[in-house]
Nucleic acid binder design. Structure first.
Lengths: 250, 250
DNA sequence: CGCTTAGTTGAGTTCGTTCAACGACTGTGG
DNA sequence: CCACAGTCGTTGAACGAACTCAACTAAGCG
């Protein structure tokens, strides 16, 4: 198992955050930016395949993903696992543990990840002093809810092929607007992850992905999925795509 | 189709809210209560089977359910429908439309429903003047997210019998702590609703419910489900139940 | 009285699962 | 350097869960 290395010593100042200039993020006022920079206590670098948060834990921290891929999941007693959603740069993780009580899901990384670290107890300060940021946090929570709604629709009502196409198109669109791809549109997941997200067995997932590959929509290689035709995937899934909204970045 | 009758004329003052005294809701300070009472602009009474909010709409309002049962759902182009979650007294509806932009799901009632009406544009006032209530709204959003996580796990990884047992146990527990049952523990849904929630066909849902009935866990009658053994259902599902947390009521 | 909605049941089919075996690749220890 | 185990992906065969189609009851309503 991989471990987490704390690098609290060094901290990218939020004013120089590499994510913030992306068109996908809304502009922050100088005041907001100053506060966020104070709110950020440090950075945490995590290896690929590491567990960041565990179900049941009372985390003292709250994180924003600065770089890398991960996923949230829950398991049944007997080990059956369901991936709930993927976490990518800009996503807040650990909010549940901070607000509702304890974490009801775990978070694991798919690639090396860098996290911005916040103190759980200082969240109230944010709510007291920066209502606009408070609304942003609610926005982020509402957005997550929206993604879960889509996933639920997908798992509940789409067949295997449509489901797989939707999932890959979804990850692809999210990655695109975060500028995560260079020329190779590569999503760092194993077929086991796909299976656990779609609620399918690994064998049938393999056969389904094969069909998408035959149609030249994707190509599977070295532990991951290369997207060849994002629009084609959306078409197979009957999925409209993500909206064009700008999002906040805490 | 049923219609909505506006009864803005009359409005239960929040200080006399019939829900608030329930042990499930956290106590509000006098200050908070006063604000919420100002925030509430009126009440809306809706018949059973009515559509409260439609996917795509830009609602000018935000609601809290004061009484009755309803559900949120999304559909695919070809009509396949997925019920995402159920709404019950205390639940906030229309938050997505208010914060993120437009509604991405619809809301329909299962019984006559009474809604507290708030103005979308006044939400910022709440965030500015009452940080504790702002946090409450985030709490509610995070809680909804948590329920969706559970549903996703259920649809993705439980079989038909477990799924049905989980769903009914879930609705039962939520209803119980809202004091929605008298002696008859009755949940006002049709088998079609159950099917659309579980992601199953109506025929198979019927056969599955039959099995639960054979085990004397439920009884089906006059458009609804009577719960005979909530604990038994939880056992079949392998579900721990909802926590014991107190929740806020906006 | 017919019309609609909700629920029931059986038969046959399809989609997805489980079991099982195998190849390619990676890292580890001798 | 090779042997070994471990992970990841692939494929075939048999099975089973859930689906579709279809027909039918019962209740509610105009």
């Amino acid at each position: 198992m991989a471990t987490a290395r704390a690098t609290h010593a060094y901290k990218t100042p939020c004013e120089l955050c590499p994510l913030r200039p992306l068109p996908h993020f809304r502009d922050f006022t100088r005041d907001e930016l100053e506060f966020v920079s104070w709110f950020k206590k440090g950075e945490l670098a995590v290896d690929a395949g590491a567990t960041v948060l565990v179900e049941g834990a009372h985390s003292a921290h709250l994180y924003t993903v600065l770089a890398g891929w991960g996923f949230r999941y829950k398991s049944l007693e007997d080990g059956r696992r369901q991936i709930l959603n993927y976490v990518m740069p800009g996503d807040l993780i650990g909010l549940q543990g901070t607000i509702v009580g304890e974490m009801q899901h775990s978070v694991e990384t798919l690639s090396p990840v860098v996290l911005c670290v916040f103190e759980r107890d200082e969240l109230m300060t944010l709510y007291n002093k920066h209502p606009s940021l408070a609304l942003d946090i609610t926005w982020i929570a509402a957005q997550e809810e929206r993604m879960l709604d889509e996933h639920l629709l997908s798992i509940g009502r789409r067949n295997a092929l449509e489901r797989a196409a939707y999932l890959i198109a979804f990850l692809f669109e999210r990655g695109k607007r975060l500028d995560l791809f260079n020329d190779r549109k590569f999503i760092p997941v194993t077929q086991q992850h796909i299976a656990d997200t779609l609620g399918l067995s690994i064998v049938h997932t393999n056969k389904t992905l094969k069909k998408l590959a035959e149609r030249k929509l994707i190509r599977w290689q070295e532990r991951g999925c290369e997207v060849l035709d994002g629009e084609g995937l959306k078409e197979v899934a009957g999925w409209e795509g993500l909206g064009e909204t700008k999002r906040p970045l805490i």
